[in-house]
Amino acid sequence: MTDMTLTKSKRQTEQLEQTNTAVLGFWLYLMTDCVLFASLFATFVVLRHNTFGGPSGAQLFSLPYVLLETLVLLSSSFTNGLALLSAQRKQVRPTLIWLGVTFMLGATFLGLELSEFHKFVAMGDSWRRSGFLSAYYTLVGTHGAHISVGLIWMVVMALYIYKHGLGRLSLKRLRMLSLFWHFLDVVWIFIFTIVYLFGALHA
């Protein structure tokens, strides 16, 4: 009896360790992604005054709009945390609801970003206009591409949880997803500050 309990406990520990190793590996990927974003940030900062007669950041950006985007993404990061908490308590319905809320907020953010891009391009300020705009679209667009991938992942995750419940694998994947989503919010802090707030200063 004691032996069996011990074996079970040992197996649990091993499984937990495997999960933790996998999540650590995912963390390593996120850190390399940080390096990708860092190089895009460096490019942006170098090119930010090269407007080639086109509009500067101060002329282009509307700060209240960007603040709205920021708050939406921050809230989605928070609700994503709530989804993970519900999942750890093995509550399937709240998990799915919070994932749904996170998805809606994330989709809203992406919609706001794309409509901003659309507005700029319609005014003739596309990525072909100047070095500054090329760097701007590359940096913010790369973030947006990550958000899109995160949204797809969220749908897949919700379907998986709906079908298989909250087992060990679901929890592991949900943990990775939530790391990914929080990471995107962290990157956005710097986009908000460096691209938009600093950009609005250089009138």
Binding site: S9, L16, N20, L24, L82, L85, K90
Partner: peptide
């Protein structure tokens, strides 16, 4: 379950603690 890594040095008791729902979640929500 919980953002704690590398349990090779942790005893199985600690592993059980990680599985126990209450204590960890309150701190996490906070």
């Amino acid at each position: 379950m919980n953002p704690k890594y590398h349990l090779s040095s942790a005893s199985s008791q600690e592993a059980d603690m990680l599985h126990s729902p209450q204590a960890q979640h309150l701190t996490s929500l906070k």
